[in-house]
Structures are given as structure tokens and as C-alpha cells.
Amino acid sequence: MLLTDTQRQALLWLAVAAAAWWGVSLLAPVLLPFVLAAVMAYALRPVVDALARRRVPRWLGAGVAIALLMLLLLAVVLIIVPVVTQQWPLLREQIPPLLERLNAALVPLAQRHGLDIAIDVEGVRALLRRLISGHEGQLLDQVLASLRIGGSALLAVLGNLVLMPVVAYYLLLDWSAVVARVLALVPPRWRLAVDGLAAEVDAVLGQYLRGQLLVMGALAVFYTAGLALVGLKLALPIGVFTGLAVFVPYLGFGLGLVLALLAAVLQFQSLTGVLLVGAVYAAGQVIESFFLTPRLVGERIGLHPIAVIFALMAFGHLFGFVGVLIALPASAVLLVAVRRLQALYVSSPWYRLREAAPPRGED
């Protein structure tokens, strides 16, 4: 059986796609820092371009942009680490009295309804003694020993952390040249269509990034103000951290909630204070899920609020945590492709013939 030119071309493209998929799967650990560096460079490119328009040399603008990003990440780490290290040891002393007061209110109420319910405060106290033994120095020695055993893995992680900003810096310097070289690989007969698709994808992803930054800023203000209103002393660091961490859906919110509840338990030592902090986070989650993200992110990339929620669930189910991270930007790219396919379908002779065909019974 002889294959037509179209069939041979289709088989060739399938072979190329299979080889590319195999190569990416084989080199995934090596490619990861380069992919993250490319994402970093893409996100920082508007900043570098804006500095270049103000006659700042591109090498200097790229260095300033990456330095600012690194300082922002360092500031987030410096915000969260002191909160945890200062308050974690206090849990052993503060939680049992809180549970005893809860027992004092819960047990009479349960007995009134014929129930024998009580919290095992001594069991919780023993558990806290095992978890928070006070020998943090020994724990640090064990961690350092494990790091010495797995020194190669540690060096690999540190190497990637250094490699990513370096690669991002060189990508920012030569961004236009890199894009031009990639587009030069496209066959000339497809170049016009690919240029248009790339421009539309770039516009959609830019709108996504701007929308996500607005969501992060709004939530940082909301959580800081809400926690301050309920009287939490650490409202500023925890609120800012939660707002910035929502860039990672679910995980960022969960970490902020845990930190806030931990601070509330240690400061208020009452169920009322903990519930008030929980109410602030419940309100923030409702505002973020049903208003801010669908409106500021979903509408900017052309996704319906239901589609935003579906994308997060679908990508999370298919790809796990990484899928949750890439759900919205990947959906924006797919939306561009779907729009192009819809335009081709609507303009195709098959669609127009179906549209012009008379209904049955009118022949």
C-alpha cells in the first residue's frame, strides 16, 4: 500500500512529536531549572523592556529585575521563618490549657444531651511533648547529618537555585534573538499563522500575569486588614505572606491559614479568637474563589468563572500539584488554540454547506 504525500507528512510529524516527548521525558530533571528560568524571564521581560525604554542598558535592567525578584522571595522567607520558629515551641504550653477550657464548656453541654464526650488533654499533652521535645539542637544535628549523607542531592538543589537566575538573566539579554531563532525554524508557509498565534498567546499570558498580581495585592491587603481588625499582633507578616502565596492555589492559602491559627492560639488562648481568625480566612477564600480570581484573572484571559474552577480541578487531577500551578496559564493558551480552531471550522466549506442545507421536509 502506497502512502500519499499528506499521509507521509503526517507520519513524519507524529514521529517527530514522539521523539520530542521521549527526549523531554528522559531529560525532565535537567530541563526543569531551564523551564523555570524561561518562565522567570518571560514574567520579568516587561520590566526589562520598560527600563530599556527609559534608556537603561538591557544588561543592567535584567540584573535589577532578577535582583528585585530574588529579594522579594527572600523577604517572603524572612517573613514566615521567624513566625514559625518563635511560636512553635510555645504550643506545648499553650494548647493544653486551651483544651481544658474547651472541655469545661463542652462536657456539661454533652452530658445535658446524654453524651459522654471529652477531649483527652493528657494525651494531647503527651503528644506535644514528643513532637516538641525542646531538643531542637539534636534535631538540627540529625538534619545536618542527613544532608551530609545526601550531599549530592543538596548540591544539585543549590546548583539549580543558582542556575535558574543565571539562565533567566541571559534569556532576558537575548530574548528577541532567542524568539527570532525559534520562529526561524517554522516553515515559511506557516510563519504568518504561527506569528499571529504567538502574539495572541503572549497577549493572553500577559493579561493573566497582571490579573494574578492584582489578586495577590488585593488579598494581601484584605488578610492584613482582617487579621488586624480581630486583634492579631502578627497581622502584617501573616497577611502579606498569605496574599503573596495565593499564587500557588490552595497550598498558599493553607499555609497562611495554619500560620494564622497558630498565632491566634498562642495569642488569644481562647476559642473565640481562633474562630474569628478562621472567619477572616473563610471570607478571604470566598472572595478569592468566587470574585477576585474569576473576575480579575478569568475575565482578563477570556475564561468564564466556571471554566476557571473546572480548569483548576481538571489540571490538578491530571498532573497533581504541578497541574494546579499551570492550570490557568495553560488554559489561556488552550483557549487561543480553541478560538483558532473554531474560526477555521466556521469558515470551512463543510460548515457553510451544513448551514446552507435546507431542513428536511422542504425539498
Rank of each mutant, 00 (worst) to 15 (best):
residue 91 L to K: 04
residue 86 Q to L: 13
residue 174 D to P: 00
residue 75 A to V: 07
residue 108 P to S: 04
residue 103 N to G: 09
residue 134 G to C: 09
residue 126 A to I: 08
residue 78 L to W: 00
residue 73 L to D: 02
residue 121 V to H: 08
residue 73 L to I: 08
residue 174 D to V: 05
residue 164 M to D: 02
residue 128 L to M: 08
residue 144 L to R: 14
residue 160 N to E: 12
residue 79 I to K: 02
residue 77 V to L: 14
residue 68 L to E: 02
residue 152 S to A: 14
residue 145 A to N: 09
residue 95 I to L: 15
residue 145 A to T: 11
residue 63 G to I: 06
residue 140 L to Q: 14
residue 142 Q to C: 05
residue 68 L to Y: 02
residue 148 R to V: 07
residue 133 S to C: 08
residue 82 P to Y: 06
residue 156 A to E: 12
residue 83 V to S: 01
residue 67 A to L: 15
residue 93 E to R: 14
residue 114 G to L: 03
residue 178 V to G: 07
residue 150 G to Y: 11
residue 117 I to A: 04
residue 157 V to F: 01
residue 70 M to N: 08
residue 172 L to N: 02
residue 93 E to Y: 10
residue 62 A to C: 11
residue 112 R to W: 06
residue 78 L to A: 06
residue 114 G to C: 00
residue 105 A to S: 15
residue 81 V to W: 06
residue 138 Q to G: 08
residue 151 G to D: 04
residue 134 G to R: 10
residue 145 A to K: 03
residue 98 L to C: 05
residue 80 I to E: 14
residue 140 L to T: 13
residue 113 H to V: 11
residue 84 V to A: 09
residue 82 P to E: 05
residue 84 V to R: 00
residue 171 L to H: 02
residue 103 N to H: 09
residue 147 L to Y: 08
residue 167 V to K: 04
residue 176 S to T: 15
residue 65 A to V: 05
residue 127 L to F: 11
residue 162 V to Y: 00
residue 134 G to K: 08
residue 121 V to F: 09
residue 145 A to I: 00
residue 107 V to T: 03
residue 71 L to S: 05
residue 108 P to W: 01
residue 146 S to A: 12
residue 68 L to V: 12
residue 178 V to A: 15
residue 80 I to R: 11
residue 118 A to M: 08
residue 105 A to N: 13
residue 102 L to F: 14
residue 121 V to I: 10
residue 171 L to D: 06
residue 70 M to C: 12
residue 121 V to K: 06
residue 111 Q to G: 01
residue 127 L to N: 07
residue 160 N to G: 14
residue 129 R to F: 00
residue 120 D to S: 07
residue 73 L to W: 05
residue 143 V to D: 02
residue 159 G to H: 07
residue 107 V to K: 04
residue 106 L to V: 14
residue 118 A to L: 07
residue 162 V to E: 06
residue 145 A to Y: 09
residue 92 R to K: 15
residue 97 P to L: 00
residue 131 L to H: 02
residue 68 L to A: 13
residue 154 L to W: 12
residue 169 Y to C: 03
residue 104 A to R: 15
residue 175 W to F: 05
residue 140 L to R: 15
residue 62 A to H: 07
residue 74 L to R: 01
residue 135 H to W: 03
residue 82 P to W: 02
residue 71 L to V: 11
residue 172 L to S: 05
residue 104 A to T: 11
residue 75 A to K: 00
residue 178 V to Y: 15
residue 169 Y to P: 02
residue 71 L to Q: 03
residue 154 L to F: 11
residue 65 A to S: 14
